[in-house]
């Protein structure tokens, strides 16, 4: 079973040379730490920066340079700043190659819910609805089950949707799954996790074909 950093490490392998990547808040933010150093990648943050770098050293924080999680950041050589309309032109206009975001629920048809628990938690969707409605390549990073042990990979989302039929791939602490017209196709299992473990933790339709390899991290 992977921890959050393990999930981020596995997703980092999906990032290819020449990609512009948007990272969501939470586990997705960690992905930047594990991207190979021999490829050229630029991270976009929807609040208006392309070419994000690591967190600043203590004493070098700048209130005017933050990421979408409101954390202080730095920029790398070649970075640029822009307004919100232009930022979402990059996203809506499909100039961003890969979007990685967290979710509360994913359905077997690729629906995603991650912005609201009615009557309980209403934080808002931020840029998530724009991202999932436009991106061609969306990977969800999340735990396979919630805190109560219930599956987050469902036949149908129970929470208000963020987007419909948009998720292509899900990487959890247990598995890598591809969203296909027939359901969640199991591609890889996490170290120490069996196909049966994954089956038991997946409410949506799970497709298992042939031998399922263990993830290489």
């Amino acid at each position: 079973m992977l921890d959050k950093n393990g999930i981020a490490k596995r997703i980092a392998k999906e990032v290819q040379d020449g990609y512009y990547v948007n990272l969501g808040i939470g586990i997705p933010t960690l992905v930047a730490n594990y991207v190979r150093h021999d490829i050229e990648v630029e991270f976009q943050s929807e609040n208006g920066v392309l070419g994000m770098g690591p967190f600043p050293f203590e004493g070098e924080e700048d209130a005017d340079i933050i990421n979408a999680g409101k954390q202080t950041i730095t920029t790398l050589p070649g970075a640029s700043f822009f307004d919100s309309a232009l930022s979402f032109s990059m996203i809506r206009g499909q100039h961003v190659d890969l979007t990685i975001l967290g979710a509360m629920e994913v359905a077997e048809n690729g629906d995603i819910a991650n912005w609201k628990i009615p009557g309980k938690m209403v934080k808002g969707m931020g840029g998530a609805m724009d991202l999932v409605a436009s991106a061609e390549n969306i990977i969800v990073a999340m735990m396979h089950t919630n805190k109560r042990g219930a599956s987050k990979l469902l036949k149908k989302c129970s929470l208000p949707l963020t987007g419909v039929g948009c998720v292509k791939k899900v990487v959890t602490n247990m598995a890598v799954l591809e969203v296909t017209p027939r359901g969640f196709k199991l591609l890889e299992r996490a170290p120490g996790v069996s196909v049966d473990d994954i089956r038991n933790a997946t409410e949506g339709r799970l497709i298992v074909e042939g031998t399922i390899p263990e993830m290489v991290l």
Binding site: A85, F88, G126
Partner: peptide, 24 residues
């Protein structure tokens, strides 16, 4: 949605009564 918020502002600035977006 955040991009819709930005674009509804920009539409007002640019003289568009409305815009179509896939978001939401």
């Amino acid at each position: 949605p955040q991009g819709t918020l930005a674009e509804r502002c920009r539409a007002a600035q640019a003289g568009f009564p409305a815009i179509y977006t896939p978001a939401g």
